[in-house]
Design a protein around this nucleic acid. Sequence first.
DNA 1: CCTGTAATCATGTAGACAGCATGTC
DNA 2: CTACATGATTACAGG
Length: 712
Amino acid sequence: MEIAGLPIPPDLAASYARRGITELYPPQAACVEAGLFSGKNLLISIPTASGKTLVAEMAMHHQVARGGKCLYIVPLRALASEKFQEFSGKGLRIGIATGDFDRRDDYLGRNDIIVATSEKVDSLLRNRTPWLADITLLVVDEAHLIDDPSRGATLEMVITKLRHRNPDMQIIGLSATIGNPADLAGWLDAELIESDWRPVDLREGVFFQDSIQFADRVRQIERKSKYEDLDLVLDTVAEGGQCLVFVSSRKNAEAFAKRAASGLKLANPVLAGYADRIRSNAATDMGKTLAACVAQGAAFHHAGLSREERQIVEAGFREGEIKVIASTPTLAAGLNLPARRVIIRDYLRFSAGEGMLPIPVREYRQMAGRAGRPHLDPYGEAVLIAKSEEMVEELFDCYIEAPAEDVRSRCANEAVLCTHILSLIATGFARERDEVLGFMDGTFYAHQGESQRALSRVVHRVLEFLREAEMITEVGDWLEPTEYGSLVSRLYIDPRSAEVIVTAMADQKDYTDIGLLHLLCSTPDMPTLFVRRDDMYLLDRFLADHRDDLWMEIPWDADEEFDRSLKTALLLADWVNEIGEDEICRRYNVGPGDVYGMVESVAWLVHASRHLAGLFAPHLVRPIEEMELRTKHGIKKELLPLIRLRGIGRVRARRLFDNGIDSIEALRAAGQEKVSRILGQGIAAQVFEQLDGVREEIQEISEEQSTLSRFG
DNA sequence: CCTGTAATCATGTAGACAGCATGTC
DNA sequence: CTACATGATTACAGG
């Protein structure tokens, strides 16, 4: 099917033509035939990288041309910015809405297409964002994630809410191949487009001893080392391709990258440049290891990497300089980073309480789908590694030829339902018990015909919890949010977290940093660190000296959960006491990316607890407010006055303080010349420019006060 | 007595969304 | 309940 004949704006068609796209792939053509441009709902269940985004993009441009507005929901922030860039520069106004990166909400509504994470959309719904009512086309990327145990319910509720509000809205679901696509399509009243067509030939096989067995052929691999995974990589590189190796743990990723580095032994100025950039920014052991690997053309990738390190690794691979990345599942679900050969080395993964479990077929497909770069590779290869003769067949049966798992609703989970039912009541979606149940009737859960009784039991239990927590009141059948309840809903924290925080604050007399941090680390919203055996010394030593500083009682049989929250709190306490990042990484055995993630999470919870304190413990608002700034910047209390200035962060503020400048007044007294010596001329000029502004501000305030006092 | 190395044992294990209001080195 | 690589500890031979 020719693009030229489609009802899309000429600008868009032209931008496709420039990229050499003039004709649709067969599954894309099927979407058009199924009613893409006549407002039909579609569920497109086709493999990764076979042009789903293009279908959605054409539909969005078509909608906007007719005065519509589109919302594109993605599961990850990284994906949001990837899509944002992809959609930009093609004639429409594109907005992006995620927690960390945000065009202001009121401006957001002026865009034609808004890209957002599901949680952000949920939050926008909770805050009654008006423009959501104008959405005429909803695109749900990775719609199969409705099955995700922790975040699936949010996606399901967001879709249900949006449909409830905009019944005429067109919906396009983009999904990986799943076992029961008709089920999902039925719920969405959508036409199902199913296909396993791919733009690049994908060969899936199993490696054993010295050859890869494919369904229809065998490929010999030269054995150069005693490591089969390494030989598979060297084979691809020798052929001019790149490799992605999926492993089960961070340690495995790092170990394999080291092995690959010494096997490849590449060296060139570009790689040396990457390595230098990584080295100069990272004092951690992990960073040094990464730099050493990258210098030789190999890298590892996991959530412990800092943003910068990640970015360098991804870019280096895209440029073709880095030949192999050993990765944990970070890369499987995240960015689009294809390689000629994908090696799924570990198909067992540890899962808490259950030991080693085989990864789901869907995840295998997700990883295998990364094989083969369109237009660049002649074909893609996905390779599993068998450890014995029998495993070869088993891997074929369990992965390559296995049907993908069914998608199931995750709505019946009491814990996740708590937050969503509260938000239904807080935003007026439901005002009575029956309305809550009626709303739930529109969910995928109900569509799947799961037991209604089970659902209604859970709903009643949840309402009971919310009522006892005084987040809602119930008069007759009438449900009403309390001020507390509606605050919790808007803050977007788990009601159970709010309860933990409020209970502890209510009978609290003295504020301590560690008390607050530990409290927040004990909430279900906070990810906590794994406690190793030799961490116990650290924890015990802390408890010996500071047990009275904790807000929460120490259980007499301190369990693992307690240890985890305490260890995490200690890390964060170090962060706000300006312990260096590398020292923190060493002390707690984490990477810079982990520190960043935990700081981000706790900063959000500190913010929420400040609002909760406003309601229940006013005397704590002030100290919590300080802690909010301190967590955000990673500074001691003494730097608070300086941090307010633009251009001054934790490092520069510390440098000023150590030179005897501890406040705005001191800064002014020191004079621009002295500050120039400390910070350099440019920054100093910028700072002093602001000081003039501050002076005016202060004058204004004092004038205002004098006017007031005249009346008082 | 010290050192290097092989055998043995204990240990630890993936990822990442949200508020708010603008700017780090 | 499941696996397995890593790092620590111990055992032991050789210098």
